[in-house]
């Protein structure tokens, strides 16, 4: 199934999640006008999220994202692990409906 969800982080930037999934995430793009230093961390993050079970909780997704952030020594500006996790869960919950918040 294909899904996407756009989420404006309060006080931050826009995150757009686009993913394909069955019982697991088959592929995922984390898009938006935020900043992550170093920028290459985004590919590491997308690779780490690929293959994960979609029934993980938002907190579980956030913990995994935080783990990648730390191992990459990445700094996120206008976005954070919690808001990315929220957008992922919303994309899955929406079942392919595109929404903007």
């Amino acid at each position: 199934m294909e899904a996407s969800f756009a989420y404006k982080v309060p006080g931050g930037k826009l995150i757009k999640i686009r993913l394909n999934y069955g019982s697991t995430i088959e592929n995922i793009n984390i898009l938006g006008d935020f900043f992550i230093h170093p920028e290459s961390s985004i590919q590491k993050l997308e690779a780490r999220l690929t293959g994960l079970q979609i029934d993980k909780t938002e907190d579980e997704f956030a913990a995994i994202i935080e783990e990648v952030r730390r191992s990459e020594g990445a700094e996120m500006i206008g976005v954070d692990p919690k808001s990315i996790a929220h957008a992922i869960k919303m994309a899955i919950k929406n079942d392919g409906e595109v929404e903007n918040h």
């Binding site: 898009l31 006008d33 920028e39 985004i42």
Partner: peptide
């Protein structure tokens, strides 16, 4: 566009 954006989007 920013490096994390999609051109077509």
């Amino acid at each position: 566009i920013g490096c994390f954006q999609s051109m077509r989007d």
